[in-house]
């Protein structure tokens, strides 16, 4: 295959992969701190997409501006879900360690409720929003790059970097990292662990709020889109390393480029089977992922 097509595929893969990574960030963070695999991750993204859509449809708000509403709204939702639904499970376990399967089942219940409540409320129709202005397509070396996707991809890097910095240098960030390392020690040092948990969950969801606003301009929105992104996020996060922020981005890019290049040779569906096979192999042979610690 010629070099142009190959490099085009790689560029496609980088953009799409970075977006996957940005979306998966929250999942990794939540697992890293709470040790909870949030089965409802995709559902939160779906909700944030709808928030941006309704802001545009009802108030004519520009999707990028809707991030101002989306981010706090999703933060609040995440905080609430953690405090009301997940916290009782954690409290029940005396050592404040969540039995992993119970947490998975609980978040699976949340996923069922959220996805189907959205289906009941919004209907199954696909919505698409149209930005009022046209974000230009940048052509680099003959390869057209969609401006909207580029913005979302760059945001993924920026957010990953920003969160890593914040985790290292802010008080709350340090508390979160301490809890992630050893919750008992953290509790004994006077950290309010349940507050940290709620903050983390809220933070993870607010990242989804941002990305919902960023990808709404080019993605058709329906209740089913949550599950599709959810499964991709699991693959990305496991590949990159559960609990690692940079791992989410790296994992996303690996998957994105792999699928982009593979689908030039085989059908896109075979490429997605390839990702799943890769996912299984990593889980069995290197469960800590590319960037994770063993």
């Amino acid at each position: 295959m010629d070099a142009f097509i190959l490099s085009y595929a790689v560029v496609n893969g980088l953009l799409q992969g970075a977006i996957y990574g940005g979306v998966a960030l929250g999942l990794s963070l939540i697992f890293g701190v709470l040790r909870v695999v949030n089965f409802a991750h995709g559902s939160f993204l779906m909700l944030s997409l709808y928030i941006s859509f309704w802001c545009w449809s009802l108030f004519g708000m520009d999707p990028y501006l809707s991030a101002l509403i989306n981010i706090p709204a999703m933060f609040a939702l995440g905080y609430m879900v953690q405090s009301v639904i997940i916290a009782p499970l954690i409290k029940r376990e005396s050592a404040m360690v969540v039995e992993p399967l119970s947490a998975l089942l609980l978040t699976a219940g949340v996923f069922l409720v959220m996805d189907n409540a959205a289906l009941m409320a919004f209907g199954p129709d696909v919505r698409a929003l149209q930005a009022g202005y046209y974000v230009p397509t940048i052509v680099v070396g003959g390869i057209p790059i969609s401006g909207q996707r580029l913005i979302a991809a760059l945001a993924a890097f920026a957010v990953a970097g920003g969160i890593s910095y914040w985790l290292r240098h802010s008080d709350m960030g340090r508390a979160i990292r301490a809890t992630a390392q050893n919750r008992d020690a953290a509790a004994m040092s006077g950290i309010n662990v349940s507050s940290v948990y709620a903050m983390t969950f809220g933070l993870g969801c607010s990242v989804l709020g941002l990305f919902g606003a960023l990808i709404a301009p080019f993605l058709p929105i329906s209740p089913a889109i949550g599950l599709a992104f959810g499964i991709k996020s699991f693959i990305v996060v496991v590949l990159g390393g559960l609990g690692s922020i940079s791992g989410a981005i790296v994992g996303g890019i690996v998957i994105g480029v792999f699928e982009a290049v593979a689908s030039q040779f085989v059908t896109a569906t075979s490429a997605s089977i390839g990702s799943l096979v890769l996912f299984i192999l990593i889980l069995i042979f290197r469960p800590q992922g590319i960037m994770g610690r063993a």
Binding site: I5, Y8, A9, N12, L15, Q16, L219, I225, A228, F229, E259, A260, S263, Q264, A268, A271
Partner: peptide
Amino acid sequence: TDFGNQLLK
């Protein structure tokens, strides 16, 4: 979520 790959093909 993305037809980029098929369009490229």
